[in-house]
Simulated assay, not measured.
Amino acid sequence: MGLHARMDCQPDCSTYAAVRPVAIGLLDCYGKCGSMNRAEECFNNMPSPDIICWNSLLGGYSSLGDSTQVFSLVKKIQKAGLNIDAITFISIRTACSHAGLVEEGKHYFDSMTGLGIRKSVEHYNCIVDILGRANRLEEALVVVNSIPVGADAVTWRILLGSCRKWGNVEIGKVTFEALVQAVGTKEDASAYVLMSDLYGSMSSIDKFL
């Protein structure tokens, strides 16, 4: 019997919730399985949850794209007197991306500087994904080029995937070349597949014109 199944056999989440490391593991487990009722039950039995515990619960709702619950939890975190951190912002922008909340995602991204939170490449990747899903590819490319430490292969794959989705060959070419350069001597079949699909989609469109 797996860990998740054994936990579900327990009628009372308080059995584990009092042990913080186990409780956090439970929150992650339930969140990844989409069992948010169980996650909430576990969280509510935790004594004095800190920001790590809140982030674990937040991550579950974020992965489900439940932006309403994510924003509600962020308000509760602040009301509890805790400071949201870099992990919190990743969950916020992931939810914004799934829900298509572009302006909200940009707002939270921009607010990080004022809160003294350092933006990692992962944070930039989130906002690139938000813009890419909304077909704001020019803006996404500007964000990519503004990353202080430089974009990584994941960043370029996200943008190239958006170019394929929207059929933007011009930005797609730039992105493909940057991705090939980013991976260096390593073979990256996904880059060629994405670019091939992009050209393929444009050929299909041309047939109907």
Rank of each mutant, 00 (worst) to 15 (best):
K79G: 05
G100V: 12
I117Y: 12
L57R: 01
N55T: 11
V128T: 10
Y124W: 12
I90Q: 03
S67T: 12
C126H: 08
M46C: 01
V70H: 06
K79E: 15
V70A: 07
I90F: 01
K75G: 01
N45S: 14
N44Q: 13
A95N: 06
M112H: 09
E104R: 06
H98D: 04
K106D: 00
A95T: 03
S63D: 06
L137F: 05
P49N: 05
D50S: 08
D85W: 09
W54D: 08
V74T: 06
A39I: 06
E104Y: 08
C96M: 10
V142D: 15
L58C: 07
K106F: 02
G105R: 08
G100W: 06
V102I: 13
V142G: 00
L82E: 14
Y108A: 04
F43Y: 04
S120E: 15
R133Q: 02
F89Q: 11
V143P: 05
S111W: 01
N125I: 11
I87T: 13
N83G: 03
P49H: 02
S48N: 15
S62Y: 07
V102A: 00
V74W: 00
G116L: 14
Q69C: 12
E40I: 09
D129Q: 09
I130S: 04
G65M: 07
Y108E: 11
N55K: 08
F71H: 05
S63Y: 05
I92T: 11
D66N: 14
I77R: 00
N45I: 00
E104V: 10
D50T: 10
A95C: 07
I130Q: 07
D110S: 08
L82T: 06
E139I: 03
G114F: 08
V121R: 04
G105Y: 13
L141D: 04
I87K: 04
V70D: 09
E41K: 03
C126E: 12
A39L: 08
C126D: 11
D129E: 14
I92D: 10
R93I: 15
I84F: 01
F71Q: 05
L73R: 05
R133I: 02
L58M: 09
N55V: 12
S97T: 02
A95L: 07
N83D: 15
L141K: 06
T94S: 15
L137K: 06
I87E: 05
L131V: 10
N44G: 11
S56W: 01
L82F: 10
P47N: 09
R136A: 01
H123F: 02
L141F: 13
S91R: 09
I90N: 01
G81Q: 11
G81K: 10
N125C: 15
R118I: 14
N135S: 09
E104A: 08
N55S: 11
F109Y: 14
G81N: 10
T88G: 12
G100S: 11
L58Y: 06
E139C: 04
H107R: 15
N55A: 09
K119Y: 02
Q69L: 04
Q78A: 07
E103I: 01
G132P: 04
